[in-house]
């Protein structure tokens, strides 16, 4: 179910990301809903589902962008594997770890996108963009990750079989 849920949720996020979200842009930075959804889903789900979300989210974002299709996917795959690796060493995920994951994800996605976009023939100025787009985006994403994580947790609970029914089945 987690695989199929990615399409409507990430589809809506992609559309919001290219319509409503640019209206609240500060300097060059804006929250990246797809990135936050992939981070949250990776924390709460197995790696296979996270990779599906990375592919679906990345492709949807790129369809609404001038960047080649797949540009956002690479960074999201790195993020999914990295978070999955780190979370396997943790007992639980608290707020600080959630913020840490978000900041790592923003940095990985920015580096990955910048490299691919530069190779695609577009101009990038890493030093200027670091201050003008990456820092505001990082702050925005740290703020937005809380509601996104709560939303994904509720979705997961809503679509997962309840413990009680599992116990009944085992009886």
């Amino acid at each position: 179910m987690g695989h199929w849920l990615s399409i409507p949720i990430l589809g809506l996020a992609a559309i919001l990301g290219s319509t409503f979200i640019p209206q609240i842009r500060v300097f060059g930075g804006q929250p990246d809903l797809i990135l936050l959804l992939v981070v949250s889903w990776t924390i709460l789900s197995p790696l296979e589902e996270a990779i599906t979300w990375a592919f679906v989210g990345g492709i949807l974002a790129d369809l609404l962008s001038a960047a080649p299709t797949g540009t956002s996917v690479i960074g999201l795959i790195f993020i999914a594997f990295l978070i999955d690796r780190i979370k396997s060493q943790l007992i639980s995920v608290n707020l600080l770890i959630l913020f840490g994951f978000t900041l790592i994800a923003v940095a990985v996605q920015w580096v990955s996108q910048s490299v691919i976009i530069a190779f695609s023939g577009y101009t990038i100025r890493p030093f200027e963009q670091f201050f003008y787009t990456l820092l505001p985006a990082a702050i925005y994403n740290v703020i937005f990750v809380i509601p996104v994580y709560v939303f994904i947790r509720r979705v997961k609970r809503g679509f997962s079989p309840r413990r009680r029914s599992r116990r009944l089945v085992s009886e």
């Binding site: 992609a14 592919f55 492709i59 949807l60 369809l63 609404l64 080649p68 797949g70 996917v73 795959i77």
Partner: peptide, 29 residues
């Protein structure tokens, strides 16, 4: 996963994905 994503980028840059991109981009747009 990385190989598939890399192949997507190469195919997109070469224009091989344009018809498929158009099909999926139409409802999104």
């Amino acid at each position: 996963s990385l190989f598939v994503a890399g192949a997507l980028i190469m195919a997109s840059r070469a224009g091989l994905l344009t018809p498929i991109e158009n099909v999926f981009a139409t409802p999104l747009n």
